[in-house]
Each structure stands twice: as C-alpha cells, then as structure tokens.
Simulated scan of single mutants.
Amino acid sequence: MKAKMGLTALFLIFLVGLWLVVAPFAVGYQPRGAAYADATVNDLWVGGVLAGGSFVVLVAYAADALREITGRGRHSAD
C-alpha cells in the first residue's frame, strides 16, 4: 500500500512539473517571441527539476522492480 501511495505521489509530482514547464505558454503569460519573463524562467527551472527528479526516481523504482521480478523467476527455476 505504501509503495502505491509513493508511486502515485511521484507520478503527480511529475505531472505538476510538466504543467509548470508548459503553463507559461498554455496560459499565455509568456508572449510569443518576447524575451522570457522572470516568472517563465522560474516555472521552467522549477518544473524541470520536479519533472526530471521524479522521472529519475520512477525509472529507478521500475528498474528495481524488474530486478526483483527477474530474481524471483531465477530462484523459482532452481
């Protein structure tokens, strides 16, 4: 149960990070062709860190789960 809650939280953090990266352009407070506003730069950095960090942890969790699954298969064949 705790693992599912943690994965759900990581996935939500990943989505929030993606939204922060996209928001300045989707909402329209960053005019097209203009120099990036401070808010846009902040959203890009914070969103990128959140999305990137949570993605790395999700991939590490998936790799660990695959390693555990393959380990179980190897031990049951013996």
Rank of each mutant, 00 (worst) to 15 (best):
L44F: 12
F14N: 11
A65R: 06
A60N: 06
Y29F: 15
I13S: 07
G48D: 11
I13W: 07
G17F: 08
G73C: 05
I13G: 05
W19Q: 03
S76L: 08
G48P: 12
A23R: 12
G53Q: 11
A26V: 15
G47M: 05
A63I: 09
V16K: 00
I13E: 04
Y36H: 14
F25H: 07
P24C: 00
V59P: 06
S54R: 02
M1P: 12
F25N: 05
A9N: 07
G28E: 09
F14Y: 13
F55Y: 09
Y36W: 14
A35L: 09
P31H: 00
G73V: 03
A60Y: 09
A62W: 09
A34V: 03
A39F: 04
A37R: 14
R74V: 10
G33L: 06
A65N: 06
L18P: 07
D43V: 01
L18R: 02
R67I: 11
V49S: 03
L58S: 02
D38F: 01
I13C: 08
G71W: 04
V57D: 03
V59A: 14
W45P: 03
G6D: 02
W19D: 05
G6Y: 09
G17E: 08
G71D: 11
I69C: 07
G33Y: 05
M5D: 10
G48H: 10
A37C: 04
W19F: 13
W45F: 12
A77T: 03
T8P: 06
F55L: 15
D43A: 15
L58T: 01
V41K: 13
V21M: 15
V56I: 12
V49D: 01
V49T: 00
S54E: 07
Y61W: 10
V22H: 05
L18N: 08
G71T: 01
A37G: 11
K2F: 13
A65V: 02
G73Y: 09
V56C: 08
